[in-house]
Design a protein around this nucleic acid. Structure first.
Length: 1135
RNA sequence: UGGUCUGUAGCUUAAUGGUAAAAGCAGUUGCCUUAUACGCAAAAUAGUAUUGGUUCAAAUCCAAUCAGGCCAACCA
């Protein structure tokens, strides 16, 4: 135990942090913070795994600070908070990175490089920046266990994923279906949404668009249409920008509540009379108002109109809602062998195509309000097509050309995918054919933005691809219900963004056709009749042997002895299983969505426990030492990530937990906003405005950075990152704290204070001490509440205010003398104990947010004062707000004193009178006895602080003061409502007599016609406004008047004080110790002699002078100036 | 395009629907110190993106618009 408090030189956060970090590592401070809580109730935290294949950025620092501070706080609250780290290691970004590095594309994999070698590369790339991540984790002070992290590419991890998938499969929640995905025929590959979001993907192109006519079948259901036009043909108009999808058409979709009209008109190309149906709102797009005909005329007669006449007369015949059209049938537009009804039924036996369907995605913005629906080539089309079971036709192959059996269009590319010079756009030919057949109503070029493949620059198609899905929609309602039990910060993300997402959820498309990821554990026979879903490695190994036994010789021969060693491609794909009927089964080549990896982390981080598995345990997962039940680790009490994870991790965690275990995965989730640059732009490498967290931490320290990130904006708001903000935190908060500590250490070392004296009960301490301790405990209460509400921003701001305003600027400043004056006895000990306690407590409150410097102070304090204190601030229990300490009245009257001082100082400033110059008197009007009593208790303080000799009070009944009255709007507003305006005006016009009357009687009846109400004294606020004839200042309901007369005595005292100040400066300049005694000699020839002699005793006491003498014509090195008088002095240190 | 969040002094943030919109930073002026120019004080700076509405009372509630962020999409 040291006997002296460590005294630091100037504040150097980065240096201090490095030392603390070393100590933490030597003393295993983090590990102990957990082991010390063993047996305590757990607070479960999940670490969202970062991907270590890129450099960490400042945005990682903010979300990790948030996680860290909650975990530290909960630890201090007495919980056991385990923090297992993890790494996300699969996924597209990693693959793309490797492809870029190797200079290859997806198509080259398996050709130029084997899948085995490629995956090996990925495995190496995955943890490329692990060192950097580990480094930032250390340096920023993020406490997480990185010794035993979960890693998503490990077999045990993948195995758990398989087990989960098998649970889903067994419940019938995992199924294969077709999904419509972006596909690049030129590159021969599907595109991920990530690839589609590359810049420049969407380009404006001009395409041939056609409004085409589908002929309605005449039957009972369509009678109302045909009757309206005397049995003539009726056509549905539909618009498309992709005529090549027309041979695959199987339906027409309308909006149920949209108004449609039947129009009698002529085909502009053939001039034949026709009747068409389209949305009423879109009539102006096709017909001119002036050409509308109201009466029933013979349209066929106008057929012979002169050539060149472009007018298209039209007439409304009938109007109906889309709902009325539902189920109407129409004739196939472009029938060929390949898309005959027999072929359609071949693919989908129960198909019932060529009907009108209802869906709510139909709008009346474009086209005709009737949407041509080809289920193969649009996600919406597919969805509505499936609902109505209209089948599916894919008349375009994977190269992007029409299939055989489409007549003249067979084998033609639908877009110029091969860069043919003679390319003739098949879309134009289709349009021409339809024009000739009286099936096109309008054909034109249409410019729109359309996605293109980023590799080949060719247009992308939406194409049906086989995929495996998780039937999340099956438990949609349950997921919505469970979500309501989750505490979201901010609330709106949970209710709005996440809630909406759940409401509009679709099944989870799990398939990815990539190479580096968790393989889908599903094997199928060639004919697809038989399917096996594998749940564990053991199960797979048994199946491997079984297949070898049944199918014979070479099957799985490499995997017979040790079983499978790596669950990745290509090995899993080499394994052939056998069906119950003896057929060989191959694995479905897909990988699963990486989001399943991270969403399954609550289970997979532990791995499967075979023993529990064999007994059918509900949670067959391994458990870390000391944990008895899985329930101690699940669900999470708290998780936090960026708001961009809403549809990512937050969703997959929620979905998997709901699907497999019917619970939530987390009880509280904080989604933090993004970090923008100081102009509010998103940080991106392209803009070069990315902030390097290493540099920031090195420059300003992790503590200041963390504090800034947390207190500048609420975590869920976006943060505009500005270095100047960190500087300010460093300077203001940490600088101030540092000075307070330094001040304490300096004097405590002089006096040898080490808290060995008995703890002095608060009630016995001086008012100032009771005040700061009361404020401190009020602060503890606030901070605890804010932390508990996951609102560290408010907690931090409250602490900042306390440290800066209360502790430093008021308590320490006013109490300085107590530390250096007088003997080491009661008052001094009180001061030390109080300041010690305040410092220790305040660093404890701050510790979760900025863990380093607070620990440095904590340790320094307790190196001298070891009251059996724990080794680190992170091991102590969070302070509790103790009611006995809290004295609200005291805090209020101190506030009064602070306000009074502030006002008096502002008056001094106005009059240009220095604080060192004493003044005689200040006048304060008091409005009620409470105020007077309060002020009276702090008047000594005020007088000392502003250097005034006396305070006089003006009583309420004193007519000397000008008062003003105004309503208390909160109270009166509710009661008076509409009369408020009149009351407010009337009150402001009150005379001084009326106000006094109100004060004496406690109420007043206002008889103005619009009011007629009695107003109570408690319902108004009376303020003193002015004291005629005095120099006054008003603020915060307080008024002060200053007597600025300078008497001779005051003047002399002022001189003395100035003199003291100059001598103190000399002491400091010469580097004297605080306790050194001195002798002072002053030149006899000065106007100040009278002042100095009068106050000689005071002066000597202040400057610790034993001798004070006068010499005429003194020569010396020090010439000082006191109130415009030059003066030579000689100061010498006494031996 | 849809959903959602945000918009307050030059900048960063405050303000249970309650009436001269509060701070800090930067700039200006002056000042203190046996902890502190990393400090203290003063003056100045906005009428709360816009437009309407509800209300005795709106930065705050409602609607629309505009701008920005995020998420999802881009489908005829």
């Amino acid at each position: 135990m040291s006997s002296r408090y460590k005294e630091f030189s100037t504040l150097n956060l980065p240096l201090t942090e490095a030392e603390i970090l070393k100590q933490w590592e030597q003393n295993h401070t983090f590990e102990k913070s957990i082991s010390q809580r063993s047996g305590a109730s757990p607070f479960v935290f999940y670490e969202g795994p970062p991907s270590a294949n890129g450099m960490p950025g400042i945005h990682h620092v903010i979300s990790r600070t948030l996680k860290d501070l909650v975990c530290r706080y909960k630890t201090m609250q007495g919980y056991l908070v385990n923090r297992k780290g993890g790494w996300d290691t699969h996924g597209l970004p990693i693959e793309l990175g490797v492809e870029k590095e190797l200079g290859i594309t997806k198509e080259d994999i398996g050709k130029k490089i084997s899948v085995e070698a490629y995956n090996q590369k990925c495995r190496e790339a995955v943890l490329r920046f692990k060192d950097k991540w580990d480094d930032i984790t250390r340096k920023m002070g993020y406490w997480v266990d990185l010794n035993d992290p979960y890693i998503t590419f490990k077999n045990e991890y993948i195995e758990t994923l398989w087990w989960l998938l098998k649970q889903l499969y067994s419940k019938g929640l995992l199924y294969e279906s077709v999904s419509i995905q972006p596909y690049s025929p030129a590159a021969g590959t599907g595109l991920s949404s990530h690839e589609l979001n590359q810049p420049g993907t969407y380009k404006d192109v001009k395409d041939t668009s056609a409004t085409v006519m589908f002929r309605a079948l005449q039957n009972e259901q369509s009678k109302f249409l045909h009757d309206a036009v005397h049995g003539a043909e009726v056509f549905f108009l539909a618009w498309t920008t992709t005529p090549w999808t027309l041979p695959s058409n199987l339906g027409l979709t309308v909006g149920g509540s949209i108004d449609y009209v039947l129009i009698q008109t002529k085909n502009p190309y053939t001039q034949l009379p026709i009747n068409v149906v389209l949305a009423e709102k879109l009539l102006p797009k096709y017909f001119k108002p002036e050409e509308e005909i109201k009466e029933d005329v013979d349209f066929a007669a106008s057929q012979n109109a002169a050539a060149g006449v472009t007018a298209i007369p039209w007439r409304r015949v009938l109007q109906c809602k889309g709902k009325a059209l539902e189920g109407l049938q129409y004739e196939q537009l472009l029938p060929y062998e390949a898309n005959s009804i027999e072929e359609i039924k071949n693919i989908t036996p129960e198909a019932n195509p060529f009907r009108i369907l209802l869906a709510d995605f139909v709008t009346t913005e474009d086209g005709t309000g009737i949407v041509h629906t080809a289920p193969a080539f649009g996600a919406d089309d597919f969805k509505v097509g499936k609902k109505y079971n209209i089948g599916i036709l894919t008349m375009v192959d994977k190269q992007g050309k029409f299939v055989d059996g489409l007549g003249e269009f067979s084998n033609r590319y639908v877009k110029n995918y091969k860069d043919e010079e003679e390319f003739v756009d098949v879309n134009v030919d289709i349009a021409v054919k339809l024009k000739k057949e009286n099936r096109a109503f309008r054909v034109e070029k249409y410019e729109h933005s359309y996605p293109h493949c980023w590799r080949t620059d060719k247009p992308v198609l939406y194409y049906p691809l086989d995929a495996w899905f998780i039937k999340t929609t099956a438990i949609k309602d349950r997921l919505v219900e469970l979500n309501k039990t989750i505490q979201w910060k901010p609330k709106s993300t949970g209710e709005g963004r996440f809630g909406n997402w759940l409401e509009n959820m679709v099944d989870w498309n799990l398939s990815r056709s990539r190479f580096w990821g968790t393989p889908l554990p599903i094997w199928k026979t060639e004919d697809g009749e038989s399917i096996k879903c594998i749940g564990t490695i053991d199960e797979l190994n048994n199946e491997i042997k079984l297949a070898n036994e049944v199918l014979g010789a070479d099957i799985n021969k490499d995997y017979l002895h040790e079983g499978i060693l790596d669950l990745h491609k290509p090995y899993v794909d080499e394994i052939i299983l056998v069906s119950d009927t003896g057929q060989p089964m191959k694995r479905v080549p897909d990988l699963i969505d990486v989001w399943f990896d991270s969403g399954a982390m609550p289970y997979a981080q532990w791995g499967l426990d075979y023993e529990k598995l064999s007994t059918g345990h509900k949670h067959p997962f391994k458990l870390p030492a000391g944990v008895e039940k899985f329930e101690e680790l699940y669900p999470a009490s708290f998780i936090a990530e960026g708001v961009d994870q809403t549809r990512g991790w937050f969703y997959t965690l929620h979905a998997i937990a709901g699907l497999v275990f019917d619970t939530v995965a987390y009880k509280t989730v904080v989604s933090n906003g993004l970090v923008l640059d100081k102009k509010g732009n998103k940080m991106s490498k392209r803009w070069g405005n990315v902030v390097n967290p290493f540099e920031t931490i090195e420059k300003y320290g992790a503590d200041a950075t963390r504090w800034y990130l947390i207190t500048n904006a609420s975590p869920w708001d976006n943060l505009k990152f500005d270095e100047d903000g960190i500087k300010e935190v460093q300077r203001k908060l940490f600088g101030t704290l540092h000075n307070i500590y330094q001040f304490f250490a300096l004097y405590a070392n002089v006096d040898g204070f080490n808290f060995s004296e008995q703890y002095i009960p608060v009630s016995e301490r001086p008012e100032m001490d009771r005040w700061i301790l009361s404020s401190l405990h009020t602060l503890i209460g606030k901070v605890t509440q804010y932390y508990d509400e996951y609102d560290p921003t408010q907690a931090g701001r409250a602490i900042e205010d306390f440290v800066g305003e209360q502790l430093s600027n008021w308590y320490v400043r006013l109490c300085r003398r107590r530390f250096w004056k007088g003997e080491y006895e009661f008052d001094k000990i009180c001061a030390y104990q109080t300041l010690f306690e305040s410092l220790e407590t305040v660093v404890t409150l701050m510790a979760p947010i900025s863990p380093f410097y607070t620990d440095a102070i904590y340790m320094s304090l307790n190196e001298v004062v070891k009251k059996g204190a724990p080794q680190s601030v992170h091991h102590v229990f969070f302070p509790k707000a103790e009611q006995p300490y809290i004295d609200t009245d005291l805090e209020n009257r101190m506030k009064l004193a602070q306000d009074a001082c502030s006002l008096i100082l502002s008056l001094r400033k106005k009059q240009n009178i220095k604080v060192r110059q004493p003044l005689q008197k200040v006048l304060i009007p008091v409005l009620n006895p409470t105020m007077k009593a309060g002020l009276a208790q702090v008047e000594n303080l005020i007088m000392a602080e502003v250097n005034i000799k006396e305070i006089a009070y003006l009583n309420p009944e004193d007519t000397f003061i000008h008062k003003k009255v105004k309503p208390n709007f909160v109270l009166l507003g509710k009661k008076m409502g509409a009369k408020m305006k009149a009351i407010s005006t009337a009150l402001s016009n009150f005379s001084q007599e009326e106000i006094q009357h109100l004060e004496m009687n406690g109420q007043v009846f206002m008889s103005a016609p619009a009011i007629n109400e009695t107003i109570l004294l408690s319902e108004v606020e009376i303020t003193a406004e002015d004291i005629p004839g005095w120099s006054v200042a008003t603020g915060n309901g307080l008024t002060v008047a200053l007597d600025i007369t300078l008497t001779k005595d005051l003047k002399m005292e002022g001189d003395a004080r100035e003199f003291v100040n100059r001598i103190q400066n000399i002491r400091k300049e010469r580097g004297f110790e605080l306790t050194d005694r001195i002798s002072v000699t002053v030149d006899d020839n000065t106007n100040l002699k009278e002042s100095l002699i009068t106050f000689k005793n005071y002066i000597c006491a202040e400057i610790l002078a034993d001798n004070f003498s006068w010499v005429a014509g003194l020569q010396g090195e020090s010439v000082i100036e006191v109130n415009d008088n030059q003066l030579v002095v000689v100061v010498t240190k006494n031996k």
